[in-house]
Amino acid sequence: MTKTTGLNQYVKYGLILLLSISLILLTQGIKLLKYGGGAPIDGMAIMGLLTLWLFSMIGIMITDVIKKADIPVLRSFPILGWVSITSLVMCLIFDFFVTAIQAVDFLSITTPILTFAGISVADRLVDLRKTSWKVAIVAVFVFMGTYLASALLAQFGLMISGN
């Protein structure tokens, strides 16, 4: 695949993000159609979607700048993290963004993502043959282990802090 650079690359990211927020809008619409109630598609929801698009773009640009500046500690910080931080900072400064973004139904954001996640692994299902059943069992305990240990520590911590 030819590597697109500079402005072209951002246009591409912008379009992919546009696809992403359009599918979120669609999902929220389907939910409305099915349940009648729920999060309405109004001006605020549209503003919310556009805000999500904007913060994602800013996060992408920050990641690029940091990669170019070659700051050792921050270089490995994922793009996903930068987008969350961008959004967090902007939302702390302007309450409007919180209202706008929360007008977008949360679960409507998740369905399109998992749709693409499923498609993306289509060719990797065959790789499962390379893994042994033993590692599969271990995987279950590894996932349970991290979640259970964190949950126990959190439960304990919250209890002590009296929350």
Partner: peptide, 25 residues
């Protein structure tokens, strides 16, 4: 399939932006 796996992370970005708005308040 290549598009989905290469750009999945970008399709996820609006979700990550949504989390910022959840943490802020």
């Amino acid at each position: 399939i290549g598009f989905a796996s290469q750009y999945l992370i970008f399709i996820m970005l609006p979700l990550m932006a949504r989390y910022g708005a959840d943490v802020a308040p």
